[in-house]
Simulated scan of single mutants.
Amino acid sequence: MTIHTKKHRLKQAIREVVRSNGGVEAAVEGLRVQKTHLARYGSANDMSYFMPIDIVCELEAKCSKPIVTQALAHELGFELFRIPPTDAEGQVSEQLRKVFKESGEVFVAGADALADNRVDEEEAIGLLKETDEAIGALVRLQKLLERRIEGRSEVAAA
Rank of each mutant, 00 (worst) to 15 (best):
E89Q: 13
G30V: 06
S20Q: 14
A44G: 09
T2H: 04
V33E: 11
V119N: 07
G30A: 03
P52E: 04
Q95E: 11
I83R: 03
F78N: 12
L76Q: 14
M1H: 02
L31M: 01
E58L: 09
L127C: 10
A134C: 12
R152S: 09
L76Y: 08
L96V: 14
K7M: 09
Q91Y: 00
K101F: 02
E89S: 07
R32A: 14
H8W: 11
V68I: 11
A73Y: 01
C57P: 01
A26R: 02
R152Q: 14
R82V: 10
A137L: 01
P52D: 01
L10D: 08
T69D: 08
I55M: 02
E154D: 14
L145N: 15
L31C: 03
E79G: 04
I14Y: 00
I149N: 11
R148W: 08
E75W: 03
F50D: 14
A13H: 11
A158T: 15
Q142A: 02
V139A: 02
D112F: 01
H4Y: 09
A134P: 10
K35E: 15
A88Q: 11
V106G: 01
V108L: 05
K7N: 03
A61F: 14
M51A: 05
E130H: 04
M47E: 10
K7W: 04
E94K: 10
L144F: 00
V33H: 05
R97F: 12
E16P: 08
A44K: 03
V18D: 08
V92S: 10
S103W: 07
Q34P: 07
E105Y: 00
A73I: 12
T131L: 05
E60M: 02
H4G: 07
A27E: 01
Q91S: 10
P85D: 09
G104V: 00
A39F: 01
D120N: 15
R152C: 13
H37N: 15
V24M: 00
D46L: 05
L127K: 07
H8G: 15
T36W: 07
R82N: 06
P52L: 02
R140V: 09
E94N: 12
V68N: 07
E75A: 09
D54K: 03
Q34E: 14
A124P: 08
S103Q: 05
A61P: 08
F81C: 07
I53E: 12
R140Y: 00
A61I: 14
L31N: 03
R148V: 09
E29M: 07
G110W: 00
I14G: 04
Y41A: 05
H74V: 08
T5P: 01
L141K: 02
G22H: 00
T36C: 06
P84L: 12
D87P: 01
I135S: 02
G90L: 09
G42P: 05
K11N: 10
T2R: 01
Q34D: 15
L144Q: 06
I149P: 02
K7C: 09
E130P: 08
A13I: 07
I53M: 06
T36H: 04
K129D: 15
D120Y: 05
M1K: 04
D87H: 13
L10F: 05
D112K: 08
A73M: 13
F78D: 08
D46G: 02
